[in-house]
C-alpha cells in the first residue's frame, strides 16, 4: 500500500494508492484514477462497498462497486479493476486490471476505511440507522469498521464456537424485528452430553444483527456454509458469482436484479418471499432490494476449488439439470 500524501487534503482526508490506482475523497465523492481513466462514486456508496470487501476478505468471486470499479478474488491474490466487466469500456479498450497480493489490497482498504469514515457513520448500517458519510473529516468510527465477522466452525451456540447474541453482549433486537419470538428451544441433555445436544433460535439471533448485507457463517457441514444475513435498503455491491450460490428467504421479501456477469446485460428479476428458494447461477451478477429489514439465508459451497472446476467443466454453471 502507498499513502500518496501523508498530509491530509484541505478537508482532512488522506489520499491512498495501490499499484497504479489512486483514491481520493472530498465532501461528497471518491475519485479513482488509473492509467487509462478515472471515475467518481458517492462516498457513502464507496464506503459501503469497501466495508464489505474488507469484512468478507473479498468474498467469493467479483465485488462490483458499481458498473465500472470492483475487485475479483483469486483466494490469495485479488484483482482490482476498472471497466473490466463493462462492455463499453472493454470495446473501447480503456478497461484496466491490476493484481495484488490479498493482504496488500486489504491493507489499503482498511486504512482508507479508517481515515475516510467519519464519527457517526457506519457503512454496515441501514441508512435509517446511521449518520452521514458526507462533509469534511470528523473523527472516525473504527469500532464499526473493524467488526469481526462471525464464522462458526460447527454452529453458533455450540460450546467453544460463536456465542449467542443478547442485550448484555451489545446486540439488542433490531427495531424492524421487535415482533420476532425470542424463545429458545427446549434442550434436555442427558448427563455427559451437555456439550453435544445443541440448538438455538436462529431467527432471534438474526433479529439481533446490527449489520446489513453481511453474510456470516452460523453452521458448517464440511464446506457447505449457512451464511444468513439481515437485509435492508439495497445490497451496496453488485456481486458477480464465481460459483453457484443459493438464497433461502427466511422472512419478508427481497427483489433481485440479475445481470450477465461479464457484460451487465439484464437477465432476470427474482422476487423472493418467505420460504422461497432460488439459485444464482455461476455466470451472473446480482444486486438486491429490501424495503423492510428481512432475513436471508445465503448458502455457499466454500470450496476454493470451484472456480477452477467450473473453468475445466468439472462443476456446473447452473445449479441443476432437469
Amino acid at each position: 500500500m502507498t499513502i500518496i500524501d501523508e498530509a491530509p487534503n484541505h478537508l482532512g482526508y488522506r489520499q491512498f494508492g495501490v499499484g497504479r490506482f489512486t483514491f481520493s475523497r472530498d465532501e461528497y465523492f471518491v475519485t479513482v484514477e488509473w492509467p487509462t481513466g478515472n471515475h467518481q462514486m458517492p462516498v457513502d456508496q464507496w464506503l459501503r462497498c469497501v466495508q464489505r470487501d474488507v469484512a468478507w476478505g473479498f468474498f467469493y468471486g467479483i465485488v462490483n462497486f458499481d458498473s465500472v470499479i470492483g475487485t475479483m478474488n483469486h483466494y490469495g491474490t485479488v484483482d482490482m479493476f476498472a471497466g473490466r466487466f463493462n462492455e463499453a469500456y472493454r470495446r473501447a479498450e480503456v478497461d484496466y486490471n491490476e493484481t495484488f497480493d490479498h493482504d496488500e489490497l486489504l491493507g489499503c482498504f482498511k486504512a482508507m476505511l479508517s481515515d475516510w469514515t467519519n464519527e457517526g457513520y457506519d457503512p454496515f448500517a441501514a441508512p435509517l440507522e446511521t449518520g452521514s458519510a458526507f462533509g469534511p473529516s470528523s473523527g472516525n468510527n473504527d469500532d464499526a469498521v473493524t467488526r469481526r465477522r462471525v464464522v462458526a466452525e460447527r454452529m453458533v451456540s455450540v460450546p467453544g464456537d460463536e456465542p449467542l447474541r443478547s442485550d448484555d453482549s451489545g446486540f439488542p433486537v433490531n427495531r424492524a424485528f421487535s415482533d420476532v419470538d425470542q424463545g429458545e428451544p427446549v434442550i434436555e441433555a442427558s448427563p455427559g452430553y451437555e456439550d453435544e445436544v445443541c440448538s438455538f433460535n436462529l431467527f432471534a439471533y438474526l433479529s439481533r444483527s446490527d449489520v446489513t448485507w453481511n453474510p456470516s457463517v452460523v453452521s458448517a457441514c464440511k464446506e457447505s456454509l449457512y451464511c444468513p444475513t439481515t437485509e435492508e435498503f439495497t445490497l451496496p455491491v453488485i456481486h458477480g458469482n464465481d460459483r453457484v450460490e443459493w438464497f433461502v428467504q427466511l422472512s419478508d421479501e427481497i427483489q433481485w436484479d440479475v445481470e450477465d456477469r461479464d457484460t451487465g446485460a439484464k437477465r432476470a428479476r427474482v422476487v423472493m418471499k418467505a420460504g422461497d428458494v432460488a439459485a444464482m447461477p455461476a455466470d451472473i451478477r446480482h444486486t438486491g432490494y429490501s424495503p423492510k429489514r428481512a432475513m436471508l439465508l445465503v448458502w455457499e459451497n466454500g470450496s476454493p476449488r470451484i472456480p477452477e472446476m467450473i473453468a475445466k467443466g468439472e462443476a456446473p454453471v447452473h445449479p441443476v439439470d432437469f
Binding site: V248, Q249, E253, V258, A265, K266, R267, A268, R269, V270, V271, M272, K273, A274, G275, D276, V277, A278, A279, M280, P281, H318, P319, V320, F322
Partner: peptide, 20 residues
Amino acid sequence: AKGGVQIVDDDPKYYAFSNI
C-alpha cells in the same frame, strides 16, 4: 406467498426456484 423469476433474457430453470 410465493414469489418467482421474471425472465428478461434467460431460462427460469437456471434459478431452480421453489418454495419450501
